[in-house]
Amino acid sequence: MADKEPRGEAYETQHVHTVYEEIASHFSSTRYKPWPIVESFLKGLPDGSIGADVGCGNGKYLAVNPRVFIVGSDRSTNLVKIAKAYHSHSVIVADSLSLPHPSKTFDFAISIAVIHHLSTPERRIEAVRAVLDILRPPSSVQGDEGGKALIYVWALEQKDSRRGWDEGHEQDVMVPWVLKGKREKKPSKKRQSDDQISEDRDRDRGMGGQGEDKTFLRYYHLYRKGELEGDIEEAGGRILGSGYEKDNWWAIAVSKMDS
């Protein structure tokens, strides 16, 4: 259960941004396997498509399709430094609620495991709106629905995961990330070749080493079934598809036609 501090920007600075800044390097070493829905979304784009990866983290999705151009952004300078390695794209440091992109620009946008870090319903809806706002509106060409956004958030319903959360549980939670000892091991070869790495294990996996463990707590809002779709509707989006994958809810949405 989350604490009783007032939620909002200052709260997220302490319980999300500062944590990622500190765990960036270790966090990144556990994030190299793209989730299947995201991978197929990115691979299905025409060459030369322009997109934004809002909350790109270490940039793992920038590697999926080198034939599109993505401007990745993240709140964490340390994560962006890692994401910079993907030379075919560009990365910037930016806040997802103050994106430096012109409105109605991109063919696609992805927001993967980002919006669940915003700590009030209003801010989550605002974050969805910010993603929809930068999408290209539908054109007069028949069948062109405009830019598409893929949004992915952690699910409340994950009773088979190690955490075991499920319907009825508190949705606002603090999730530990354990940095073990001073020395960090690289991921083992077995892990790198493992096709089915569960995101659940990834999320707070400690590494072997010596010295004292340090635990960081990150704020998450766990989405219940239908809630993501509700936020998208509220933000002025239209849902093209949605579903559940590996303890997460996802939805693909477009901006509603301009009136």
Binding site: R75, V80, P100
Partner: peptide, 18 residues
């Protein structure tokens, strides 16, 4: 003014401009 350092532009705003 947004600084570019080591090829990365930083668009974080000071509190009063958000």
């Amino acid at each position: 003014e947004y600084k570019v350092m080591e090829g990365v532009a930083n668009f974080l705003l000071p509190g009063h401009l958000v």
